[in-house]
Design a protein around this nucleic acid. Structure first.
Lengths: 213, 213
DNA sequence: GCATATAGGTACCGCTCGGTTACATCGTCA
DNA sequence: TGACGATGTAACCGAGCGGTACCTATATGC
């Protein structure tokens, strides 16, 4: 980053006009997430972005590369947001997990919920050599590690195993949420996670997350 | 290219010649499950089946209809197999669930595990009006009911909620299994389910599934 | 022996896909 | 003013898609 200067002029007090690559990224992100990667053609992406096809191929090597970029960005964002929620009250990891899960539970309870874009991409691209799949696997591995660390912070006897159990719950919400929408199995995820955590804590260490009473 | 010898004329001492429709069903089932529905073209399906495209369209209205047929068959089979395992020891629903989960856990621990075809299809077809998606939703609803009934048979206080919690675990195994393959989070599903069941049983009612010691 | 019904194959359709080319245009800054 | 970098325009490519009109082979009933 040498110059912070806008490469493109802001015409008379407007927001800086977005460059083609960024518009493409945004449009691809929406479409890929909403409809799936395979279901969306490059034509549709550039049309929605208000740009043209050569612009896409000037910034991205291929549709696969664009998909990988989409997953990379979304994954990093998700990981960062998770991190932020946990860090909001570092003394109370269990309570913060609960906060995160309550948000997830609310999102998954909507009829147009589409789950986790990373998981969805892995389902769409079973071939482990595919660039999109590679990114998806990487993101998920990091998330898995993060959950194990969280379980350790909670004082679990076997943090890796508690982390994995929680991960099953997360993944379960992603797919069952988009399968059932409102009123689906996702509605029990907060309680289920609580039960799982409880069962992994040494005796006397457990008992309720946030409520002191 | 010679005429290719008659594939179905061997009625003298052999298996009954399989009809084109059935060969197509088998090949579609393998390919759809392995690679995903969108990733597979009708050309590949008929080639692998050893038949030709018009044969496909004489038995199925469209690729979508074939996909729906594939999901219907796979779903019914899966439900029936689950039913059979549970029915093998009707007095011990908890132990039978455990049996089923141990099998699932073993399958999900392979590097080429591809999860649940029904779940995968729902991810590939987010549009609820799509014929394949409709079948997928139907199958999953029935499985959800079945789990609730199972939870009731175990004597859970809130069978619907325990059923849903177990469903989250199942779905979690499907996607995390194909994401991580061997050594993934699926390895804890039996224990996690056990903990969940335990937490839902009235006091004194619980304690271990199969092992009496 | 011959007609017929039917399962199957041959060869093709139009379309959309991901991706590319050559060139024109516009805005910005030196 | 002039040059440059970023973008748009328009046409195009080969491959593969889902789907179909039409012909051929075979088993069977009369």
């Amino acid at each position: 980053m040498t110059k912070g200067k806008p490469l493109r002029s802001r015409r008379a007090g407007g927001k800086p006009p977005k460059r083609a690559a960024e518009r493409i990224r945004e449009s691809a992100r929406d479409l890929f997430y909403r409809q799936g990667i395979r279901a969306v053609g490059v034509e549709e992406i550039v049309t929605r972005a208000g740009v043209t096809k050569p612009s896409l191929y000037r910034s991205f090597l291929s549709k696969d590369a664009l998909a990988a970029d989409y997953l990379r960005h979304m994954g990093e964002d998700g990981l960062a947001r998770f991190e932020a929620v946990i860090a909001a009250d570092p003394e109370n990891p269990r309570g913060q997990l609960r906060v995160w899960l309550m948000e997830l539970q609310a999102k998954a309870d909507k009829s147009d919920y589409r789950g986790c874009g990373t998981t969805n991409a892995a389902v769409e691209y079973p071939d482990r050599r595919h660039p999109a799949r590679k990114v998806a696997s990487d993101i998920k591995s990091r998330f898995r590690s993060r959950l194990a660390a969280l379980a350790a912070a909670m004082g679990a006897r076997e943090p890796d195993r508690l982390g994995d159990a929680l991960m099953l719950l997360f993944e379960g919400v992603y797919t069952s949420g988009q399968l059932f929408g409102a009123g689906g199995p996702a509605r029990v995820v907060v309680d289920a996670a609580d039960a799982l955590v409880e069962s992994h804590l040494p005796p006397g260490r457990g008992h309720r997350a946030t409520t002191p009473s």
